[in-house]
Design a binder for these strands. Structure first.
Lengths: 403, 403
DNA sequence: CCGATTAAATCACTTTAATGGAATAATTCG
DNA sequence: CGAATTATTCCATTAAAGTGATTTAATCGG
């Protein structure tokens, strides 16, 4: 158990990120305002901004006027400062998105990939990334990295299964390393819920939250935790399996061996099965459209699912609140916005918990990213990795410098 | 939302604490070993140790021999480096403990205090502290602080209630400030479970754990979370209410408004009620002895409680694991050791969870502190506050320097 | 028994990020 | 238009960690 010390170099890296993060969250912002927000000296901020501008990460937008004194120069994140790819592969559908570091989507490619052989998928990802770079005229050197999201649990580089068996051939494959070799770009890998939580934190509903739980409603139910401004992955990297919170003691049997798990009541797969008993465990874009249509037409099969899902989620949310006392619970995943809204409406009102008296934030917040969430969340992984002032950065050894 | 930067001063404080923490956890240790453990330069460690010795926090114990090279000088924490008081007040019993910074108990006073008026209690605490200082011949200036533990939830300085009404007169009292004024010593206040978790982390079962959940079995059930090496108090400081995890959907009604909460099945109060229906909601030392005796004589009323408590805790533990993926769950509180052991024996085997395949640590660990846990945990609060290399220390403004 | 070897700890000096104070720049206010 | 105000930069200082050589004190091997 090593507890590493800090030196000036670490503090420097950390401060660069503090400044970037401050600008990202509050842009446009002047040097003087950053000074006040960070507690660093004006001179220090001036130096740091000079570096960040030099590196192309920050740009001046305009001069503020109207007030006394020398007009402040407003700064914000330069969208051309870097690019990232977000890749999601889930149940036969591959989605690749190219975004800039300011969160703008530059390109988007969706491919049906019935073949599940890992090598074929990874090759296809590599090919698609190369094509998109050419089409958008972005040099590979300007790409910070590639985020990959797969609905599974990872430990180190490897996929491990809980409950349902993993896709054949994928288990125990050094996924990150393999893709990194093919792409010649840094690859970050994450489960869907945590990636979505990071995405919401960077650009969505979590922008002003430091402590929240994200509930990801997808084929199953996943959870992503953001605690003290950082994703929390647990002691062994497998936190957030809130799909297996028991919301109905002795209820429906679950593949995990218990009974009454949240996932047995609230998943999108179950919604699709409710609409069409023969539905296989695949979620395509038009499946989501069908759910939205069913809601629009008040299809009783969907409404039943909504009620069941809401009841289970209500229980789970109260337990999450009592355990973690988050600022809010963000509910998201692949559901279309109207369905998500209807679901939340049915979850409310929530029973009493430690969060009952919080007046600053609503207890449930709808995620903002929508059905492309997995890939969008994936795309934020390299941004988060390169920008966020993670405290432990102070003694991280293998940090890629962007500045 | 301020995100503060780091400077050399912060890094210095942080490094002093990294060194202290390293010694604390791995003593005896030589300068060279600290160098390797912290990644800092040998010269830096030499300088830091010089300061810490000067301040009386660290002492040389002996020279190691047997190996080649200049013999290493072994260092450890100097128990006389400082003192702290731990105070627990719960259900009419006041316990005050004086410990040194190495965790040694120097004095212990237990008082029956039927009067629940806050002022009377605080006065009595102040008087007892003064008496103990005189008796043990410790100067007030050498006391780092006083930890106070009360079985309740706090927000900022104030006691807030969930479910059961708080003790009359205590609610909304600025408890910390009042006691601090009376004592003229820094006062830290914490709920029982978090204090116990900190205690176990410093001196007990959690010494080698950075991520664990502590389940506190007392009059009710509390939870203390230790995440990334730090206590986690949630977005609003009220995390860890795991007594209200629902382990039996639709089960016994709870004061929180839900049904089937863990606390309705596993608390010590319930054990005492099982043994004696007229038992009031007070737990004295001899009550705990009675529980131990009941176990020794295999009293069926206690065994029934044990079975129910174990079943509920089993459910709760699996949910905690699935949600947080801790290195372990530490089970403790005020139960006598044999009862705790019996309880854990009945909880096992645990159902499947994300923790099922963890081979490094057992999934449940018994706490080591025993029935004095609340006060012992309280006593560790100032030590933790003064020693632990909390990362956010890097930009904390109001830190009391000990070095 | 003694020189070679090894490892710990220290000495003297360097590096570097942040900082402090003075100076300068560009506005609005009266 | 000058005073006031605020933002930003220039120049020199500070302090914590780091570097490389040196000293210290033990064991090992002949």
């Amino acid at each position: 158990m090593k507890l590493l010390g800090a030196n000036m170099d670490h503090a420097k890296r950390f401060n660069r990120r503090v400044v970037l993060e401050t600008i990202r969250l509050q842009a446009p912002l002047s040097r003087a305002e950053i000074t006040r927000a960070t507690g660093l000296a004006p001179q220090t901020i001036s130096n740091i901004i000079a570096e960040l501008s030099e590196a192309g990460l920050v740009r001046s937008v305009n001069r503020r006027s109207g007030a006394r004194g020398q007009p402040a120069v407003e700064l914000d994140i330069n969208p051309d400062g870097g690019f990232t790819f977000g890749v999601s592969f889930s149940h036969g559908v591959l989605l690749v998105i190219l975004t800039d570091v300011a969160g703008g989507v530059r390109d988007r490619v969706e491919i049906d990939l019935p073949s599940l052989a890992p090598d074929a998928v990874l090759d296809r990802i590599a090919r698609t990334v190369a094509e998109m770079l050419t089409r958008q005229n972005v040099a590979r050197s300007r790409v910070w990295g590639v985020g990959l999201v797969i609905p599974a649990i990872f430990q180190d580089d490897h996929l491990v299964a809980l409950g349902e068996t993993a896709l054949p051939g994928w288990k125990d494959l050094p996924l990150r390393q393999s893709l990194q070799n093919k792409l010649e770009l840094p690859v970050l890998i994450e489960n869907d819920a945590t990636a979505a939580a990071i995405g919401e934190r960077l650009y969505g509903a979590g922008k002003s939250l430091t402590d929240f739980a994200y509930i990801y409603v997808g084929a199953g139910i996943g959870g992503g935790l953001f605690l003290r401004g950082q994703p929390y992955r647990g002691g062994y990297g497998k936190s957030g399996e809130i799909g297996h919170l028991v919301t109905d003691t002795g209820g429906r049997p679950c593949t995990c061996g218990n009974r009454g798990c949240l996932e047995r009541y609230a998943s999108v797969s179950l919604a699709l099965k409710a609409l069409d008993e023969s539905h296989e465990d695949v979620i395509r874009h038009d499946d989501l459209d069908r759910i939205a249509a069913a809601l629009a037409s008040a299809d009783p099969r969907l409404l039943t699912w909504l009620d069941e899902a809401a009841a289970s989620l209500r229980q789970a949310i109260v337990m999450i609140e009592n355990m973690l006392d988050p600022q809010a619970v963000v509910l998201g995943g692949v559901l279309p916005q109207p369905v998500l809204t209807a679901l939340i409406a049915r979850i409310l009102p929530l029973p009493r918990s430690v969060s009952s008296n919080n007046e600053d934030t609503p207890r449930i917040i709808a995620a903002e990213m929508g059905p492309d969430t997995p890939a969008l969340g994936a795309a934020t992984l390299p941004v988060f990795d390169g920008m966020s002032p993670e405290l432990s950065l102070l003694f991280k050894q293998d940090v890629v410098e962007r500045i």
